[in-house]
């Protein structure tokens, strides 16, 4: 399989990476080289093979329903949460106005 310029543009838009014409021109053959190369995977017969779910067999651990049980994953730290924000006002993050 190979991707067209339009497809790359669409993927870039899905991934929210703005790409100018030059960047697209460069990216199309690069992606196609990689896709051609991974194409070899299709030659492997994987019928009856389960996709990998857990690399080391381990069961999903669940935690107790306790608020702020571990300080590092607790709420109530607005200053920390907003500390690195490019725009923070009145306790909120600010983004360009969204029209829904």
């Amino acid at each position: 399989m190979s991707v067209t310029r339009e497809e790359v543009a669409k993927i870039a838009s899905l991934a929210r990476i703005r790409m100018g014409e030059d960047a697209l021109d460069r990216m199309v053959p690069e992606l196609n080289n990689i896709l051609d190369w991974v194409e070899q995977l299709s030659e492997v017969d994987t019928s009856g093979v389960e996709p990998m779910t857990a690399v080391i067999s381990n069961s999903l651990r669940l935690r107790d329903d306790v608020v702020d049980a571990i300080p590092e994953t607790a709420g109530g730290r607005r200053e920390d949460v907003l500390a690195n924000a490019p725009v923070a006002e009145h306790g909120f993050f600010g983004v360009p106005k969204v029209i829904e």
Binding site: I11, A15, L31, V38, L41, S42, T46, V49, E50, P51
Partner: peptide
Amino acid sequence: TYVLSAGFYDAYYTQAQKIRT
């Protein structure tokens, strides 16, 4: 993004995870 996108997921991602198995 491409290998997860609609229509390509099984051919790429699922196949790769099977090969990982």
